[in-house]
Each structure stands twice: as structure tokens, then as C-alpha cells.
Amino acid sequence: MTEKKKRKISLSIPAEEIMRPGNLACQGCGASLAMRYALKALGRNVIFDIPACCWSVIDGPFPYSSIGVPLLHMAFETAASTASGIRAATKVLGKEDTTVVAWAGDGGTFDIGFQALSGAAERNEDIIYVCYDNEAYMNTGIQRSGATPYGAWTTTTPVKHYKKLPKKDIIEIMAAHRIPYVANVNIAYPEDFIRKFKKAASIKGTKFIHVFSPCPPGWKMKPDDTIKVAKLAVQTRVFPLIEIEHGIKYTLNVKVNKPKPVFEYLKLQGRFKHLTEKEVQRIQEDVDAYWDYIMKKVEFSKEYAG
């Protein structure tokens, strides 16, 4: 029998599924998809630690685990410090090729775990720190966090007192630590997502990846709108997809030449439905200004960082 000539297809998204079927995520959970893509990019030679966050539950009750790779559950504020310890152990045990990943939510990153994250970044620990950001404490029932955006309703920022403070600019904060790699990704852009995780795994030192991760129950939106909303976040320039190398070199990864109005993004989410036209306009102006600011950095990078 002659051997059939196989057509070589190069897939930009690895076909292997490391995550096991069945987990405790809500319908339309962005964080569940994020983990699936991250594992596809990183492969099996990884160790995860996960502090208190939705993923403490999503992975499944003891003795089940859906993640398919070794995982240490840890206390809320310890994602980065625990990962530092795991990394030190792999080094001393001769397993330096293992990728160590801290996988935390926005509360565990922007708020309670920030000190440990900043410390690990300053030490340039050889870890990938991933923050899947659903913009509030979702696991405890939608309380505002430092990642909750201006204008949003949460259970602790009720409609009468919706959040009137901006979201922390976490990637700029992390870039200011001058770590080798900072990037953001979006579950609606899996190719960019996977490329960035692969790149992070190839770099020594601290890598920080900020994941845009819609939460249908928390954002008061339809579960089947997850990808649509995630895509709109990019298309409206609410969430510009960029990477920042060594804190200086900014690159825009997805061009948005004809941005849609921010209202397109807001209107699908019940958490913004109380906003007046004036407030929507204000958010539009903030988004435009931030985009310009980032584009200036991208331009500057071309000149300065080459």
C-alpha cells in the first residue's frame, strides 16, 4: 500500500484539548474559554496556582479537576508569591523547563493580591501571571473591584451610586515594573491570545497577561453574547489589544480603523443600562482619549525602541 500523502495544515490554534470536558463555569463564561486557550498555547508541562476567584470553583469539587494539569489552590492574595515558590522549587529540582502560571481574577490581581504581584514583578520571577478580568468580584456575587469600569452597576455600586471612578490601568502599572513582557488578550481573538501566551512562555522573567473575560451573570447579558461583547470591546476601542516589552516598547496588535460607538458595547450589558446619554458620551470621550494615549506610546515606541 502506498502511503497517502498527507496535506500539511499549520493550525494557528493547537488542536489538542488539555482541559477536560465538564466544569463548574456558568453558561457563556469567558474565564472558562480563556483557560482552554491558555492551555492550548502552553501545553502540559506547566504548573498552575489559583487563588480565590471563580476558577477556585470552576475547576470542580474534590476529587475532580477539569484543568488537566497540576494545580495548587491558594489563598486570595498569594497568586504571585505562591508561583514564586513553585518556580524556586522547579529550579532547584532541575525542572526549569516547566512553565509556572499564576492564574487570578481581577480582585486577586488589582486589589488584594497586588502587593504580592508587584513584589514578584520587581524580583522578575520567571512566571506567567494571568489576570482574567471580569471586572468585579463575581464569585462572591458581583461586588465592585478596582477593575470595575466607570459607570458600571454592581451589588456594592447600586444604580443610585454606580461606580464613578475609573478602572485601574493594570497593564500600564505592570509595564511600569519594567518586566520583559506585558500583554492583554481577548477571548474573542483566539489567535492573538494563543500567540501571546506562546510568546510569554518563551521569555524568561515575569510576564503579565491581562485577559478580557466577559461574565454574563455579572454583566447582566445573555450567555450567548459573550463573544459578541468581547469582540465589541475591541471594535469600540474600549479594550485595545497591545503588548508592552520591557515597559517601553508598545505594539498595537489589532488595528481598529473604523471604531464602532462605545454605546454598541454598553447596550448589550444590563450593568450599564442606567447610564444617561451624557454619561455614555463621557465614557466615549474617555475611551477616545485612552486610545490616543496608547497610540502615542505605540508611535513613540517605533521611534525610540525601534
Partner: peptide, 13 residues
Amino acid sequence: HSAMAACIGASAA
């Protein structure tokens, strides 16, 4: 706090 967390990570690994 991070010292003990790192010890936990290291010991678990």
C-alpha cells in the same frame, strides 16, 4: 505573608 505563601508553593512542588 508572601514568605509563607512562597514556602507553600515550594513545598507543594
